[in-house]
Design a binder for these strands. Structure first.
Lengths: 317, 317
DNA sequence: TTGTGGTATGGGCAAATACTCACATAATGG
DNA sequence: CCATTATGTGAGTATTTGCCCATACCACAA
């Protein structure tokens, strides 16, 4: 050994220390003794091995992949929160897994001691999530609906879940006794100016956290199936470039609201500001993919709960 | 939601905790907060993930000294493959390190698209290696046992690992439903001529690669400890110059098979030909030194996975 | 209903580890 | 030659972790 390359030998020592630590399971004291250096130096060697990337940790479990994807989603789309659940390849359910995850996430928020305002959108996924929610007493919180709860035939909109959740969590609830889509822009203004409604709208704007679904606008769009819009209106929206709707409001592929059409009559509250609130979308599946992409592009949301396959598709594009 | 498999969800949680700890670099406190459990539980989850083998650490650094030794081993003994792992001076484990390396080497072979026949010997080291093997789907390969899997008392031989590995890699497995050592040469012939056994023996001769352990013949020889041979037989073998055994067959210090004695009754397949197969021995430690030397001298193997100290000793002689 | 055995939980504490700082030494540059 | 700066070292300290133990919990049997 004439002139040993210092970097090499240093890394060699680091690798050796790392090996003794991680593979052989020695403590740093033991390593220090074996290599004839001080414990502090041993510690430095080990942490050098880590910081130089010599030590690779891999988890042999499907969950690890989900967590990886969640991290990537957060990075890529600037989300504050992301959760990816495993995809069950055999299932076509649009709620399996994500509903549980959403319920868990809600519970985390609800456990807070300090009062929060919880905004709630609508949809099948959200309904499934609420059903999975464990009852929890939280009278300190308020839960406010972001959408009207009156179906076109005057009945209660089935997928409006404000009452279900309020019941489960024993919190004060603020429903919106409105149709989801008014018959005209003027009617919407009239309704919104009502004394009963205004405070609800104001409250919704102050939401701490909101959970929303993302609806597709294909031929069996929930908005159409549930009778809130006509086939003509659906087609018109698509014509105008709409790919999804959130709380009834339609957006194009860049997450920009469609101008005119039904959007002029949507009686829902606006999605709370992403600056002041966590807006968490719950959506998975190929059908919702364009919608999720739009929501991400337009920064309509800053949280997402989805599944593995969908996360992969989002990251692939 | 029927009744979810508890073990699965527990491992899921463990994997999640392990991921947060090792990949995301959270402290146990942070994990506890995120998962909504106590720190102690988080700690338990993490250590469960470790003990269940979910967490794999790999050191991505060729320690110069080990590489050097490996190269020398290859040169000196005409090996096609050699791997040297660092030695932990304080540890007496005979598997530490080499088992990891063996698992990695197996994985390299198993990743092959073209079907291979993988021969598997027996022993503690091999068992440890298989346990560290990450599950990998390779239905294209076949894995064949080189030794019988029936212990003298009729139970399954504990260190016969054919089932373990077949399970991990989802490949077709060919066990040998035989005692390791027959009661007489005649019985061996009889067994070997059975319709069930012959194809397995033939397959083992076609192995692409075989992993074998090397057993010493000291007073606590594995062959004796596990009850395959009596003390008298052990002593007789030593008397005849035997220094080691591979798949149950005893060899002298030059790697020449012992004539007669238990060797006449060993029901194992022969070690595959070094001309057509890679035969990789996994062995380290002073006790195995004469055995490894014998295997090298007799060209019984053309691959070796060992540790630094053993490699040095081999090269010193 | 009560008891009982096995299992999970959380508190507390000692050990192990990470971090900070002051200092020594060596290389660099004027 | 000295000053300056980078680099490594050891000591002290705060944080983190591993483990034991008492307790709570649960299922099941009497």
């Amino acid at each position: 050994m004439s002139k040993p390359d210092l970097t090499t030998t240093r890394l060699d020592d680091a690798a050796r220390a790392g090996w003794l630590y991680y593979v052989a399971g020695n403590t740093q004291d033991e390593i220090a003794a074996k290599l004839g250096i001080s414990r502090q130096s041993a510690q430095r060697m080990v942490s050098l091995a880590v910081s130089e990337g010599l030590v690779k940790v891999r988890l042999d479990h499907p969950i690890a992949r989900c967590l990886d994807l969640a991290e990537q989603l957060k990075q890529r789309f600037g989300l504050k929160m992301a959760e990816v659940v495993p995809t069950d390849p055999g299932s076509t359910s649009t709620t399996l897994g994500v509903a549980d995850a959403a319920a868990a996430e809600m519970t985390r928020w609800l456990k807070s001691e300090t009062p929060i305002v919880l905004g709630i959108g609508t949809g099948r996924t959200l309904k499934a999530a609420i059903e999975l929610l464990s009852p929890i007493e939280c009278p300190q919180h308020k839960v406010v609906s972001l959408t009207g709860n009156i179906a076109p035939d005057g009945s209660a909109a089935f997928y409006n879940v404000i009452f279900n959740i309020a019941d489960k969590i024993k919190a004060r609830s603020f429903p919106m006794p409105l149709p989801v889509i008014a018959s005209s822009p003027e009617e919407r203004e009239l309704l919104h100016s009502q004394a009963m409604i205004r405070p609800v709208l104001e409250l919704s704007a102050q939401a701490t956290v909101a959970f929303v679904g993302i609806g597709d606008l294909e031929d069996d769009a929930p908005l159409f199936i549930d009778g809130f819009i006509s086939r003509q209106e659906l087609l018109a929206l698509r014509q105008a470039g709409a790919v999804c709707e959130i709380v009834g409001r339609a957006f194009d592929r860049n997450g920009v609201p469609i101008k005119g059409l039904t959007n002029d009559r949507v009686a829902s509250a606006h999605i709370p500001s992403r600056d002041t609130a966590m807006v968490i979308a719950i959506a998975k599946g190929p059908k919702k993919l364009p919608g999720i992409e739009a929501a991400l592009k337009g920064s309509l949301i800053n949280g997402l709960i989805t599944d593995e396959a969908t996360a992969e598709a989002l990251l692939a594009s």
